[in-house]
Computed example of a mutant assay.
Amino acid sequence: MTRVAEYSQALIKASVERSRLLNKRRIKSLAECRSLDEMASQLRGTAYESLLSDIREPNAAKLQYAFKEEMIRVCKKILAYSPKRIRDSLENYIRYLEVENLEILIKMKSMGASYDSILSMLHLSVDEILGLKGRFIQAAKASGVSSAIEVFRNTIYEPALSEGLRRYEETRSTRFFDFSLDRTYYDGLLNSVKSLPKADRKAALLLAGMRVDVFNIITIIRSKLLDYPPHLTFWAITRRFYLLSESQIRSMVSSRDVGSILDSVKETFYGRFLTQQRSIEETVMAFERKVDSFIMKRINGMRIAEPFTISSLLDVILRKEAEVKNLILISSGIEFGWKPGDISKFLI
């Protein structure tokens, strides 16, 4: 089968979903809303309308759950029509949503949350795509953290969960699950690129590689803010790099403070995305969003040059992802009482 035939259905679906994206003018208008009710009202007539119609007295958490469900719907459609030989790579990319589910599940289990409370927080629609929905439901019914972890035996998460459980039993902290699961996700993301056809590898490697590098940089910064010792920071990051070297990573980890880490980042390819903000958290947020914007522009260029490749499908997934990140930021900003200008400067 030719590439044109392989991609024809997927490109049609991608084009439809691209046409349903919110334009910049609509996003800017949403950022100027004075209440979440007004925001929900402005989203009538969009892809989000059906998900928001049943929400009464909206708060940021309710809206954000709906936004993510819409993103998962788009991912599901793109995956359903994607060529088989790139599907594993696309699934590995969206697996971060399942990792988020696992981290939420474990935290809520450690707090003794009820079955219904846990399910209300999980996006089981993504687990349906990736085949673990039944296990998540079973784990939500489990009697405790250890029993919930047992449910995921013989899955790709077993090694990370076993490692996290061992540290949890020593410290009673769930952060070690986060460390292990995040590291597993990013390592798997890079590994999945190897199996792709050569024509698809360039776009997938750009996305996976830059996401891995940014994960490492941000993890190092946040670890320093939390005053983690260097050995714990090394445990939390991946051993895989793309545009960073091991020596650059070691220099960041061993830095005496956050300012020194940022100075080290400025000396790398990623220095171009760093801008001084009012706080470290705002600096990190702006950094991450500038990298996201760069990745989207590069992959869009690849899509235009070679439409019958994975870049066309990644393009629409990334655009939807950016849209949802913007909506989450806007809804949080409105709830926290931020000024529209403060929200707008962090939009992708």
Results as ranks from 00 to 15, higher is better:
residue 13 K to V: 13
residue 199 A to W: 10
residue 199 A to Q: 09
residue 207 L to G: 02
residue 339 K to V: 11
residue 348 I to N: 03
residue 101 N to T: 05
residue 286 A to K: 15
residue 131 G to D: 10
residue 132 L to C: 05
residue 219 T to I: 03
residue 66 A to F: 06
residue 52 L to G: 09
residue 84 K to P: 02
residue 5 A to W: 09
residue 15 S to M: 04
residue 324 V to E: 00
residue 234 F to T: 02
residue 341 G to W: 01
residue 295 I to N: 01
residue 204 A to T: 03
residue 317 I to L: 15
residue 84 K to M: 14
residue 267 E to D: 13
residue 160 A to Y: 00
residue 278 R to A: 12
residue 345 K to Y: 04
residue 11 L to T: 15
residue 266 K to D: 03
residue 198 K to N: 09
residue 276 Q to C: 02
residue 143 S to T: 10
residue 263 D to L: 12
residue 153 R to D: 10
residue 131 G to W: 05
residue 31 A to M: 06
residue 68 K to F: 06
residue 76 K to W: 11
residue 125 S to M: 09
residue 75 C to W: 12
residue 51 L to F: 07
residue 347 L to F: 05
residue 266 K to L: 15
residue 278 R to P: 01
residue 199 A to G: 00
residue 228 Y to P: 01
residue 163 E to Y: 14
residue 202 K to S: 15
residue 192 S to G: 05
residue 266 K to T: 06
residue 320 K to M: 11
residue 195 S to M: 04
residue 4 V to P: 00
residue 209 G to Q: 10
residue 124 L to Y: 12
residue 8 S to G: 06
residue 296 M to D: 02
residue 4 V to C: 00
residue 153 R to Q: 15
residue 12 I to L: 12
residue 105 L to D: 00
residue 297 K to D: 13
residue 219 T to C: 04
residue 210 M to Q: 10
residue 334 I to S: 03
residue 13 K to R: 13
residue 19 S to V: 00
residue 29 S to L: 15
residue 158 E to G: 02
residue 346 F to C: 01
residue 307 P to C: 11
residue 87 R to V: 08
residue 325 K to G: 04
residue 159 P to F: 04
residue 274 L to T: 02
residue 301 G to V: 00
residue 187 D to W: 13
residue 106 I to R: 00
residue 80 A to E: 14
residue 181 L to R: 07
residue 163 E to P: 03
residue 60 A to G: 01
residue 83 P to I: 11
residue 231 H to R: 13
residue 15 S to Q: 14
residue 221 I to L: 07
residue 285 M to V: 02
residue 323 E to K: 14
residue 300 N to L: 09
residue 28 K to D: 07
residue 98 E to S: 10
residue 325 K to E: 04
residue 222 R to F: 04
residue 99 V to S: 04
residue 303 R to G: 00
residue 91 E to C: 08
residue 272 R to M: 01
residue 239 R to G: 14
residue 17 E to V: 13
residue 197 P to W: 08
residue 296 M to A: 14
residue 172 R to M: 09
residue 305 A to S: 09
residue 289 R to I: 07
residue 165 L to D: 02
residue 334 I to V: 11
residue 173 S to D: 14
residue 49 E to M: 11
residue 317 I to F: 06
residue 186 Y to H: 10
residue 290 K to C: 00
residue 334 I to Q: 05
residue 338 W to Y: 15
residue 39 M to I: 11
residue 58 P to C: 13
residue 121 M to Y: 04
residue 107 K to H: 08
residue 207 L to K: 06
residue 155 T to W: 13
residue 143 S to G: 13
